[in-house]
Design a protein around this nucleic acid. Structure first.
Length: 632
RNA sequence: GGGCCCGUAGCCUAGCACGGAUUAAGGCGUCAGCCUUCGGAGCUGAAGACCAUGGGUUCGAAUCCCACCGGGCCCGCCA
């Protein structure tokens, strides 16, 4: 938004001054000064110029500044420039004009989507095996992926949000084994969600049985074969169970604010014929080779050019391994294969969102097109990095440049603190432990949300004693989602999160609820004012307080944060920005009166500033999926 | 054995991509303040860090390079 214009102006006049002084064509870089007393923007160019010409940096800075000053009449937003003895040029914003334009831009809906690239993205996330309820580790994937979808859309890209359903793997088979061979009833007791029931009571129990009952393990491979063939009574039954579990999981996903465009079923991928055709191409291009002897005798392998190691893709019995499913799927995402799928509506309207489609085989395309994106982003945890690299390498061999269009957005997993494990009845040795669905050592997302919701509803009730129960519940639910999403998103994806239940029950400080609170506070001012905000040149001229300037400067930098978030596929940038903006607003709130300001022009201008700040905060919150409420 | 990631106050984190300003930024916790004033899920102040360690590059390193210590993960004809 306006800050970028301010930057561009500063760069321009420095470049012009350099040309005038005979420094030639120089690349002008600017940065935010470490301390606001230096100004609003700084440029270290004099230091570099001085070094090349063995001058004193401060002399160069002074010389350059004197030429830059002469050009200030050509700038709208650069109000002053000052040399600093360290060799810097420091620029200050011409605030009267800047405040007026920045606030008006926001009010008229210009949020500076100047990075709109119009690229197409296929972003895959969530991808939970349909045999259990989501745990907080899955939630990290979902929050990262869904926020990325939101950021990319904000930036003007066309995004398909994909959710891959592994309906033909061992994990699903285990649940079917439990129902069919251990006589476990296939309906959950009252009050328990079906996904939770299958994960907690069926999957873990079957895995315990495997240890003592070898014949049960044989049943698993029987079930697995039937499911994979897609035919027979067990396959039909499994499909029904998977649908029921998925329905329960989607409730949790929607609760967390995620929406998808397409479900990709692994069972259909297998029967689509894509693997066979990709495999033929891999053979003819020499990407895979058949091993005649050695330890991989009888297998098709992909050799690793770096290490000389081999990755088996087709076993000696002719069946394909796991990664062999990923290759055609990846190829489909970026359009390296024909699209074999039809698409049908799976759910006509997701809560607060559009239709959710599903692939089908041999059906109509119903006018929808998926796959074939310019760039595919797969949100998958860091453990899969090795396999994802192999996929990328194969794609690159199939088509030059394809590897750069297939991006593995990796992230570290969520582990449990000693305390959280203890609450689940596990006594662990160290300070944290990795979650395990098989052992039942995991924290259920619905349970976490329920705990957060309970605490939030107490807080909300205290503040709003007159409001109806229903409103309090709904508000508390939103606060709970805000708290969890923010906590999982704000931390760098490369860092392990050690989840602690007590620790997560915090609504103060650097949290999602803080953002909601700040937004509600701002909206309250606008509601109570009973006047229409109006930014005029006269009014803008009266906003000379430090808190007002900091606020307008911060809100005018949202597009910078969004473009960084998009460039590095790092939605946490938006979390950081939202928090900074909220803190800046609260500082303004404490120090500056709005409604009680007697001067009408100043009052209406300040109202306009509050209006703009709340709009920008809302936009940033939406990009990370934090719910907006007028009151909380 | 090969590879990837993490290490910043008592605790949790930001800053590292593109190296800059003798005040390294937040949050939790601790201590001291701010409700006759637009919502105290807020704000202000204090104490608390030789940025794991040792070298190197540079006028300048939390940031780049090398080494090393500690922690996590990956390297199946499992999925």
């Amino acid at each position: 938004m306006k800050f970028l214009e301010f930057e561009d102006e500063a760069k321009r006049i420095v470049a012009e001054a350099c040309a005038e002084l005979g420094y030639g064509e120089v690349e002008v870089e600017v940065a935010l000064p470490p301390n606001p007393t230096y100004g609003d923007l700084s440029c270290a160019l004099p230091m570099r110029l001085a070094k090349d010409r063995s001058e004193e940096p401060s002399d160069t800075a002074v010389k350059l500044a004197s030429k830059v000053v002469g050009r200030l009449k050509t700038t709208k937003y650069v109000g002053a420039v000052a040399p600093h003895r360290g060799g810097y040029l420091n620029f200050s914003i011409a605030y009267a004009k800047y405040i007026q334009d920045a606030v008006e831009a926001v009010t008229s809906g210009d949020l500076g989507r100047r990075d709109a690239t119009g690229r197409s993205y296929a972003i895959e996330h969530t991808n939970v095996n349909p045999n259990k309820a989501l745990h907080v580790g899955h939630a990290r994937n979902l929050v990262l992926g869904d926020s990325l979808v939101r950021v990319m859309r904000f930036l003007g890209n066309e995004v398909q949000a994909l959710n891959y359903i592994d309906d033909s793997g061992a994990q699903v088979a285990d649940v079917i084994v439990g129902f069919r061979f251990l006589g476990i009833p296939d309906s959950a007791p009252a009050g328990t969600k079906f996904d939770t029931y299958c994960g907690d009571s069926v999957y873990t129990r079957v895995n315990k049985e495997y240890a003592t009952n070898p014949s049960l393990k044989e049943k698993q491979s029987l079930v697995l074969r039937e499911i994979e063939s897609g035919e027979g009574e067990i396959a039909v039954y499994s499909k029904e169970i998977v649908k029921r579990i998925l329905a329960a999981q989607l409730e949790t996903c929607w609760r967390l604010g995620a929406r998808y465009d397409l479900l990709n079923w692994e069972s259909q991928l297998i029967h689509s014929g894509m693997w066979e055709s990709v495999f033929e191409r891999m053979k003819s291009e020499g990407i895979v080779k058949f091993e005649r002897d050695g330890e991989n005798r009888g297998c098709w392998v992909i050799p690793d050019p770096d290490t000389g190691e081999q990755k088996v893709v087709v076993r000696s019995d002719g069946t394909a391994v796991y990664v062999a499913k990923d290759i055609p799927y990846a190829a489909w995402k970026i359009g390296l294969t024909e699209d074999p799928f039809g698409y049908e509506v799976y759910i006509s309207a997701q809560p607060g969102g559009g239709a959710l489609y599903s692939t089908n085989l041999g059906g109509e395309k119903s006018g929808m097109r998926f796959g074939g994106a310019q760039t595919a982003i797969s949100v998958i945890d860091t453990k899969q990095s090795y396999l994802q690299r192999i996929v990328g390498r194969v794609l690159e061999r199939l088509e030059k440049g394809a590897a750069s269009r297939y991006v593995h957005r990796s992230y570290e997993v969520v582990a449990l603190s000693k305390g959280a494990a203890a609450q689940l009845g596990f006594d662990i040795g160290g300070e944290f432990v990795h979650m395990s669905g098989r052992k039942g050592l995991y924290v259920n997302v619905d349970a976490v949300l329920a705990g957060l919701q309970k605490k939030a509803s107490e807080e909300t009730r205290k503040r709003n004693p007159e409001d109806p129960e229903e409103w309090v519940d709904d508000t508390a639910e939103a606060v709970a989602v805000a708290a969890l999403r923010y906590e999982l998103l704000k931390q760098d994806p490369d860092k392990l999160i050690v989840f602690d239940i007590e620790e997560s029950l915090k609504f103060q400080g650097d949290t999602g609820p803080y953002l909601m609170y700040t937004y509600a506070r701002a909206r309250r001012i606008l509601e109570k004012a009973g006047e229409k905000p109006l930014m005029t040149a006269e009014g803008a001229g009266k906003l000379v307080r430090e808190q007002e300037r900091r606020l307008v400067k911060k809100l005018s930098m949202m597009d910078i944060a969004a473009s960084v978030a998009g460039e590095y596929m790092s939605p946490k940038e938006m979390a950081k920005f939202a928090h900074e903006l909220a803190a800046t607003f609260n500082d303004f709130y404490e120090g500056v009166q709005v409604i009680r300001e007697e001067d009408k022009e100043a009052r209406l201008a300040r109202l306009a500033l509050v209006d703009a700040a709340s709009s920008v905060l809302a936009e940033a919150m939406e990009m990370i999926g934090i719910p907006l409420r007028e009151r909380i």
